[in-house]
Design a protein around this nucleic acid. Structure first.
Length: 139
DNA sequence: GCCAACGTTGGC
DNA sequence: GCCAACGTTGGC
């Protein structure tokens, strides 16, 4: 069971937008980066990830689940690009900010810290547990 | 609003 | 296949 992190600018696609899609979920489309795409290809239905707001908020705000495995991205004809569907599972009781993450030595290897530009990232089991605890949700 | 980092593109 | 140029992203 792998864990992930999805990064989005809230002005473009926010946690609230994600929640509004309900159990059906929504395509995580628009990714045009091979690393991010490869991460999505590796995802299995039912795996979980964090939802991170970049830019203005810079905080993890909730937990999502992969509701459909990789398929062609409907927003392009270019068949190189694929995406998964994700649905909101639960909001963090308390958003975990980038500042807090950077202040925690156990999270120094988090991809968000080391390569903040990658839009779909892997998260290790240990990181997942720490961040869930910080956010006030069950791992 | 600026700037650094990074990934992609295109010319050679 | 390499590398310079360019565009985009995200933190500050």
């Amino acid at each position: 069971m792998a864990y992930w992190l999805f990064k989005s600018e809230p002005s473009t696609w926010s946690w609230d937008d994600q929640v509004a899609k309900g159990a059906a979920g929504e395509e995580w489309d628009g990714v045009r980066n091979y690393q991010a795409r490869n991460n999505m290809r590796a995802m299995k239905r039912g795996e979980r990830g964090f939802f991170y707001h970049s830019q203005t908020e810079k905080a993890i705000v909730g937990v999502v689940e992969v509701s459909a495995e990789a398929h062609p991205d409907s927003t392009t004809e270019d068949d190189r690009w694929e995406c998964v569907d994700i649905r909101a599972v639960a909001p963090f009781a308390r958003p975990v900010t980038l500042d807090e993450i950077k202040a925690n030595p156990n999270l120094s290897e988090l991809v968000l810290v080391k390569n903040s530009r990658l839009s779909v990232q892997p998260v290790t089991d240990a990181e997942w547990r720490i961040l869930c605890e910080m956010g006030g949700v069950d791992a």
